[in-house]
Each structure stands twice: as structure tokens, then as C-alpha cells.
Amino acid sequence: MFNLIFKDILIQRKSLLFGVIYVFVLILCFQDTGITMFLTSAIGFSYMMIQSACAYDDKNKSDILLNSLPISRNTIVVSKYVSAFVFSGISIVVYSLLTVIINLLKLPIKVSPITLEGVIGILFAIVLMCGIYFPVYFKIGYIKSKVYNFILIFGILFLTTTLLPAILGDKSKVIIQILTKFFSSQSDLIIAIKMLILIILFFSISCMISLNIYRKREF
């Protein structure tokens, strides 16, 4: 399994360098936004790497190669899910290296520090996006899923920024109040644990759906 993840990284050595520049540009763009800078650059970079690993697999028709090797289809699916965490890890490392360099060189650039809640936020976002994206990818492949991906990203944006406030109107304030109350009544640790359980549950269900789809796939 680690071999497959290693392959996903190896194959995009070049984009790794591009990714470093990408994260740096995002840091510049998100000056004065606090934690958003950390979240956006790490999530963006991770998702980009995850996507392009899928793209390379699709382009090289690697399903035929991998499924001709003594690898079970389950391993192929599970390693894609694990790779989501590996890429999140890489993007956090890249971000932290950049912040260290910026601080060492005393560049006139503000950097948002890496926090635990930031890391949890990144994992949460990646799990959410990949949890929805992977089953579609395993069903129809990268090229066809591109359209879907577009709808997914803009759908989420539209839903959260336009549609929900429009429907809920003033009620949204009430909901936010209820949520804040709910969360503030519990300790951070409890919230973190609950979130973690939710993430794991969601990702496991998504993984099971993907396994089911991929076992039936024909190449």
C-alpha cells in the first residue's frame, strides 16, 4: 500500500516545486487574514496534489497495470484514501517550512502560525472533499469526474455563501447562536473528539462505497 502512495508522490515531483510557489503566493494573497491563510494554502495544495495523482493514474490507464499486478482492488482504494492524509501532511510541512524561511530571513511578510485547530480544520476539509470526490472518481475516472468536481466546489461555495443565507434569512443567526451555544458548553477536547469521530465515520462510509464501486469496475 505504501508503495502506491509513494508512487503518487514520486510521479508529481515536479508539481511539488510548483506547489511550494503556489503556497508562497497564497501566503502573499492572504495577508492579514489570520488562520485563513494557513487553511487556504494547505487545503488548496493538498487537494491539488490529490487531484493530480488521480489525473496521472487516469492518463496512464494505470487501473489496467495495477489490477494486473498481485494487488487487491481493496488495497488500491484504501491507499488512495490514506494518501489524502499523506498529502495533507506534506502540505502542512511545506507551509511550515515556508513560514520558518520567511521568519529566518525576516522578510516583511506576515505568516499565520500553525495551530492545532488549523490542522484539524485542514483534515476536516480534506476528508469532506475527498470523501465526496473519491467514490465519483472510482466510478467514472478523473476526466469525467472533472465536471463533477467543478460542481462540487462551486456547489459548496454557492450553498454556503448564497443559498443557505437566502433560505434561512434571519434564522441563520439563530442557528449560529444555537451552534455556538452547543459548542461553547463543551470543552475543546470533547468537541475535537466528536469531530474526529464524525470525520472517521464519514470517511469510512465513503471508503466502503468506493470499495464497492471499484470491485465491480471493468477496465
Partner: peptide
């Protein structure tokens, strides 16, 4: 089984050695 297909299904972006390193651990 050793297989050879009509087309290349290896990762074109990898070198010969890298591709070998990815494949070899799967075989006992």
C-alpha cells in the same frame, strides 16, 4: 503470471528504475 500487453500501461513520468521500484515489492 508475467504479463505483457499491446500498449504501454506504465507511468510515463517515471524512469525505468523508479517504475521497477514501484512494481517489484508487490511480487513475492
Amino acid at each position: 503470471i508475467g504479463f505483457v500487453y499491446d500498449e504501454n500501461y506504465f507511468y510515463e513520468e517515471l524512469t525505468v528504475t523508479e517504475m521497477k521500484n514501484v512494481i517489484s515489492p508487490f511480487y513475492k
